[in-house]
Amino acid sequence: MEKGTWKVKTGLAQMLKGGVIMDVVTPEHAKIAEEAGACAVMALERVPADIRAAGGVARMADPTVIENIMKTVTIPVMAKCRIGHFVEAQVLEAMGVDYIDESEVLTPADENNHVWKHDFKVPFVCGCRDLGEALRRIGEGAAMIRTKGEAGTGNIVEAVRHMRAVMDGIRRLVNMPQEELMKEAKELGAPFEIVADVRKTGKLPVVNFAAGGVATPADAALMMQLGAEGVFVGSGIFKSSNPEVRAKAIVKATTHYKDPGIIAEVSKKLGDAMPGLDVNQIPDEELLAKRGW
């Protein structure tokens, strides 16, 4: 009997596919998310929109917050640690969190190094903006990838940019003659073996979700049609006027992402979406996606 293997780490992500992972800050939120059909929740002290508004240093949540959420729901519970903060990760693992998100939404603890994730039995999900970044994280042991988007904005534009970049990177590799692969690996800044594997299979070796800006059922379906295998919704649900109804609608739109009739149906009478931010108006140094490399 072997625990913490690559197969069980990547396997849990496979079980989450086609689902919606929702940010929650209280047990009540978690219950609403579970009832709505979330396939997992992300336990936080504040949703990204509030983290953005508050400024200052954002850290791992208080373990009590996470534990109370773990006690409330039976679906997997994820939690965030700061980029490179391997002790926050050790704490989350000791608490029995089901997945750790090494996340740019929190203030990075290390500007040069991410956590060496192979050392852990608990699986990690990491953000990326393009194929090279995704493959670097997988090289460090990430068992699941999500595109970064721009968290807390309610604006899908960055999530689309990052998903297209990943997919474009994969398509380039697939059409590339073998002798150009080493140079491509050098330019991607990614481990050659993983680059070669992606060229062979035409897909990432781990599950890839979309994140950062999903606010409507159509946003979720858009990311799915662009190649995401599921979606994270952060502020989009609990910063909207009717979280319960919106959560259910986004779950349905993610399953039926190719069915515009159903997406139309579930998009009716949702109330107000979260107020959005124009990414172009955000000063460069405040962009979360630029954290990590």
Partner: peptide
């Protein structure tokens, strides 16, 4: 019985 072995860190291969 759901989640009969515990949480994800208790997932295993055999």
């Amino acid at each position: 019985k759901r989640n009969a072995f515990g949480r994800q860190v208790d997932s295993f291969e055999t």
